[in-house]
Amino acid sequence: MFSLGSAQAIVYLVLAICAFVVQVWALVDCVRRRSDAFVAAGKLTKQRWTIILAVATAIGFLSLPGGFLGALGFLNIAAFVAAAVYHVDVKPALQRVQGGGRGTSNGPYGPW
């Protein structure tokens, strides 16, 4: 039999897993970037972002259902925000500096 409690548990599980995937993705991307690109983009250093994202990923792992912190606790929300800031602010700036991003809006025949 399906109950509201089990539906909520499924939603919490899916959200926690999605948050954890975003955190891991941000950490892996950060580790793969050049250190000098962070400074050239005017962002925190690579070492600081790596520490922030490593802590965020650890919190995300511990926040998975059945983990130490429980699903979607306050710390996991803060950890997700840190990873989201990396994805929407730092990563595009790094791509512009390194020249390997989708920062241009060129179509097949030139700019739109």
Rank of each mutant, 00 (worst) to 15 (best):
V88F: 11
T50H: 06
G107C: 07
R96F: 06
V24E: 12
Q95D: 10
V14A: 15
G107Q: 05
V88C: 10
R96P: 07
A26V: 04
A82H: 00
T45N: 05
G42V: 06
S105P: 01
H87E: 10
T45P: 08
S6F: 13
V28M: 13
I77K: 00
F38A: 09
Y86E: 07
G60S: 02
P65F: 03
Q8R: 15
L15Y: 12
G60Q: 00
G100R: 04
K91F: 11
R34A: 12
M1D: 11
A26L: 05
V55C: 06
F80V: 03
Y12V: 13
L4H: 10
G110T: 00
V24P: 04
S35Y: 09
V85N: 03
D89I: 07
T50V: 13
A84T: 14
I52H: 04
F38K: 01
V22T: 08
G60T: 01
R102M: 12
A93K: 00
P92G: 02
A78Y: 06
N76G: 01
A58N: 09
S6P: 05
T57K: 01
F20Y: 14
M1K: 06
K43R: 12
A83P: 01
Q8H: 14
V55H: 02
V14S: 15
A7V: 14
D29A: 14
F80R: 00
G70Y: 00
A26M: 02
R102L: 07
Q98A: 10
C18L: 15
G107E: 08
F68E: 10
I17V: 15
A7W: 14
Q95P: 01
L64E: 12
K91W: 07
I10G: 12
Y86T: 05
A71M: 06
T57G: 10
N76T: 03
P108F: 09
K46G: 09
W112N: 07
G67D: 10
R32D: 15
L72Q: 03
F20V: 08
I10V: 15
P111M: 03
Q95L: 13
G42F: 06
I77W: 01
V81E: 04
G101R: 01
P111Y: 12
A93D: 05
G107Y: 08
V28Y: 13
Y86M: 02
G5R: 07
N106S: 11
A9F: 07
A9Y: 11
A26C: 10
L53S: 06
I17W: 09
V24G: 10
I17R: 11
G67L: 01
A54N: 03
K46Y: 12
P108Q: 05
A71Q: 01
Q8W: 13
L4D: 14
V88R: 05
G110Y: 02
D89C: 04
F20Q: 10
I51D: 13
D89G: 04
A71L: 01
P111W: 06
L44W: 14
M1Q: 08
S63R: 00
G67R: 00
T104K: 04
T57Y: 07
L69F: 13
G73D: 11
G110E: 05
I52D: 06
S63N: 04
F74M: 03
G99D: 03
F74K: 00
A78V: 13
G107T: 11
W49G: 02
S3Q: 08
R34D: 14
P111G: 12
R33Y: 10
W49C: 04
L72I: 04
L13Q: 12
L69D: 11
R102D: 14
P65C: 00
A83L: 03
D89Y: 09
I17N: 08
L27N: 09
L64S: 08
A9V: 12
